[in-house]
Design a protein around this nucleic acid. Sequence first.
DNA 1: GTTTTTTTGTGATAATTTTCACTAAATTGC
DNA 2: GCAATTTAGTGAAAATTATCACAAAAAAAC
Lengths: 225, 225
Amino acid sequence: MVMDVNRRTVLRLSRYRKALQRFSELGFVKVFSDNLGEAVGVTSAQVRKDFSLFGISGNKRGGYQIDSLLETLQRILGKGRVQKVIVAGAGNIGRALIHYPTFEKEGIQIAAAFDIDPAKMHRKERIPVLSLDEMPRFIEENGIEIGIIAVPEIAAQEVCDRMVRSGIRGILNFAPIRLRCGDENVVINPVNLQIELENVIYFVHALGKNQDTAPVNDKIKVNHL
Amino acid sequence: MVMDVNRRTVLRLSRYRKALQRFSELGFVKVFSDNLGEAVGVTSAQVRKDFSLFGISGNKRGGYQIDSLLETLQRILGKGRVQKVIVAGAGNIGRALIHYPTFEKEGIQIAAAFDIDPAKMHRKERIPVLSLDEMPRFIEENGIEIGIIAVPEIAAQEVCDRMVRSGIRGILNFAPIRLRCGDENVVINPVNLQIELENVIYFVHALGKNQDTAPVNDKIKVNHL
DNA sequence: GTTTTTTTGTGATAATTTTCACTAAATTGC
DNA sequence: GCAATTTAGTGAAAATTATCACAAAAAAAC
């Protein structure tokens, strides 16, 4: 059985990590797979399978030591060192990310933001907002690997190309368009807020219609999507 | 074979819709399943399966009429009428959503935002920012069904409970916590920006390590996550 | 020390989701 | 009109993902 480390597994790992942090803060020392599963919304078997995939093992009847498990997950998720990230686009979403409260504590450092609009530039801020033209050099000089695209749809592909040419290896893309990138070694993770909202709207309507006339095959029964 | 209308299918539907809008703007009249697949990043068979699930049919050899297909998708996705939405939390993300440029055009109307901080309130704006205490009445009086949670983690569950009690049926949750909601008929869609970013970071590191020493089982080979 | 209980780790199984591959229909070219 | 070609629609197959269920280990109880 070849079980792959896929996107979903890693997302769950991040959630386990978050849950463990809370448990740790509450003073707990050990945790069982069903505690973690309950906290994250998956089965205990799923938790154990995920861990086994990364060679994480606990103690039979003893569960997992929270501290060491947390350390292991931190290491797997690359939390060992500070991860520098840049943001292209200092509009609404870009600014929200620049000020995202927990990034700093979590080892994610927004090194700079870039925009095409001179009015948005702030060179003297703690997180400077520079000209988009300066982005390639900034990426190269600072060895930035991760970029966030928060520019309008029309500019997104161009910004993506520039990022990749300058050395960016992973992109979180908020522009509502599918970015094409020839390089197989570049990871692109799209986040489309409108589509996420439309998804909620769809299921609210679908549930509304199936209130009491639900046919057998309609397994529309969601709480968490 | 019972194929379910699931989250992913609806997400794809939204993407097809978006692609169709672009095709339509470019003056195209008809489209084939492989055009749509290519635009969205899925196979043509996937496109046809998705459509067949909703009883959408095209013409053999003729493809699909863009206009009528677009109308059908709009209807399925509830684009017939304006969907009113409220936002709890007028912090960075809340404000970004309030000013999200395409919501208006797409029939999504942010009716109001709510915050606990008096300094953030703006009763006279086009999209007013009101006190969180006013939220329940606003939801009831305006028959709001969809809510966005963009408050700090600590307040999210409480806001969720209030929303649901007041009649909200679907929630887009940006707080980095799993919301519990007893009501099976309430849909919750979590969007965790930090976790999405961590996902990119993980795969960038994973790809970096497996540059030329990739073992057989490591199927880490991603472009779009 | 032995029995009982609990919980991990995992192979087997089930469920879900996607892709394949082929039929049938429509269009085009001649 | 007929053959060739293209593309939708879909059952079957494959691939992926999640769950079950049970053996083995550790701890607790007695």
